[in-house]
């Protein structure tokens, strides 16, 4: 399950952050710009990771979100808007594309 699908207000453990891109269709669906489509061609499944994907990993990493981090989803805006998560005492707004790259599982 990824962060977009995850339940709110429960503790979630980050299993992985995918460096690969999504399909073009999924990106268009999320309202990405033209550049995003171009970018995603490099991001085939099994590929080392797209530039965009690697940047997502880096930016999340800079904020302390990595495999094993415990986070909590606080809110999610309608129509694929941003998602607010809590990590410790910090709150972070994350766009849906980035959130979809974060795979999580619920923990007790």
């Amino acid at each position: 399950m990824n962060l977009v699908e995850a339940k709110q207000h429960v503790a979630l453990k980050v299993i992985s952050i995918e460096a690969g891109g999504r399909s073009q269709r999924a990106q268009r669906h999320m309202g990405m710009g033209r550049g995003a489509h171009r970018m995603s061609r490099h991001a085939m499944p099994g590929h080392m990771g797209s530039r965009r994907g690697l940047r997502i990993q880096k930016r999340l990493g800079d904020m302390g979100i990595r495999e094993g981090t415990i986070i909590r989803k606080v809110s999610q805006q309608a129509f694929r808007g941003p998602i607010v998560v809590e990590i410790g005492r910090m709150r972070l707004a994350i766009g849906p594309f980035m959130a979809a790259a974060i795979k999580v599982e619920e923990i007790e």
Binding site: G33, G35, A36, R52, M63, R91, L92, I94, P96, M98
Partner: peptide, 14 residues
């Protein structure tokens, strides 16, 4: 306009 439009990614202060 060419280029990327990244998503929001920001800390929200208390």
């Amino acid at each position: 306009v060419r280029g990327e439009s990244p998503e929001i990614f920001t800390e929200i202060p208390p």
